[in-house]
Write a protein that binds this DNA or RNA. Structure first.
Lengths: 217, 217
DNA sequence: ATATGTGAATTGATTCACAGCG
DNA sequence: CGCTGTGAATCAATTCACATAT
């Protein structure tokens, strides 16, 4: 497998969503032109992105929605369940714990942690908040793969190291800091203040172009 | 001004944060090497990013933290206040309304909207939730610049068009859909499910590299 | 006929090496 | 002498054109 641009990975997520919506609407076939229009990219780009991973279409006829959806789910690792935990049960952590459809997307929330003794033991979104000292044991028992990290900025690096030590290999970081990712751990940023600041830049510069960057909120 | 890569804009946000932290710690001078280390990029990259906008350092001596911080705030449009509103007062909207330090970052929350009559009139984070029908009037009265869009995916495009019609020029979109940005409106994505899916991809592909994309959470 | 898949061309971003200035 | 600022070179990503398959 050649090296895959990270922008390609982001676009694959978009294509998958479009295919999911097409399928819900009962559409059976589609084409790179259609996907391109909905994803706001060129049809060349769609075909090139898919070509990194194989051949999924039929020349002259386009793609079968269900087939391509399944392939993208497989490529993106969504053909298996991921066990996730929320670390930091402030307002944002609480909102994420109650977020609907996380299971539908293939992510199973299995635990919630907070270092504040006042929060430990409370119930949020069907989970009981545990102390950080339970992290290693719970991570092992629940086979935690991914953490949604919603602690304050100044606590994020310490929490990251605790997560790495506990065997968690993926972190979605909501804190407004650049994390030093321990070896073997993949970190994605989901930093809405950075997004707000980019909006500020583009408004300020009077550049009302198209969309911007990536991650989560 | 040449064209600025959007990756450069994202990195400028990071540099600004590092400078802010240095200043809080009382550090007066820094160098591209230091910023590079903290931002996880190369020193070449730091200097090239800054060079798009001017000359801010002293050869042989590096940068004055306070000066460079001020320049970056100006470049990113943070030297003026932005008036923001939350559109969609579900769990996530509520969490954002209570988010501390939004003012410190230069964003002033002035209004909150929801289409659900049951939510209208309730108080969240010092704001009274207004119906969507008030959008145009309130946007004008409060000079709303930016919306934090936290409505469900299926409502996001309609809300975007209402915001554009009300004169809001920047949208930070938390919904998991690609928005069709009306002319003159800049949209940034703050889509945490996309971030989670990218984590899934990198874990699945067993590529425990470094960080990924951008936006908010 | 029609739309995919892909090597080649182009564009863009990053890296480099060093000139320039304090 | 040190570190910035920047043109040139390298590397990567996107765009294109068309051969290919149905």
């Amino acid at each position: 497998m050649p090296h895959i641009p990270s922008a390609t990975v982001s676009r694959l997520v978009t294509y998958l969503r479009i295919l999911t919506e097409l399928r819900e609407r009962g559409v059976e076939r589609t084409a790179s032109d259609d996907l391109a229009r909905d994803a706001h990219v060129s049809a060349f780009q769609v075909r090139k992105d898919l070509a990194y991973f194989g051949r999924f279409g039929t020349r002259g006829a386009g793609y079968v929605v269900e087939t391509l959806q399944d392939e993208l789910r497989r490529i993106l690792g969504l053909d298996r369940p991921w066990n996730a935990a929320i670390v930091g049960m402030g307002r944002l952590g609480g909102a994420l714990a109650d977020y609907p459809n996380m299971d539908a997307y293939g992510f199973s929330l299995r635990a919630a942690f907070d270092s504040d003794p006042a929060k430990v033991g409370s119930a949020v979104g069907g989970l009981t908040v545990q102390p950080m000292s339970d992290l290693a044991e719970t991570a092992k028992r629940e086979s935690l793969d991914i953490a949604l990290l919603t602690v304050p900025a100044e606590a994020a690096q310490t929490a990251t190291e605790a997560l790495a030590a506990a065997g968690v290999r993926g972190i979605l970081n909501f804190a407004p800091v650049v994390l030093d990712a321990p070896s073997g751990v993949h970190v994605e940023s989901a930093d809405f203040l950075a997004g707000l600041t980019r909006v500020s830049y583009y408004l300020h510069a009077n550049l009302a172009e198209h969309d911007g960057a990536s991650v989560a909120g």
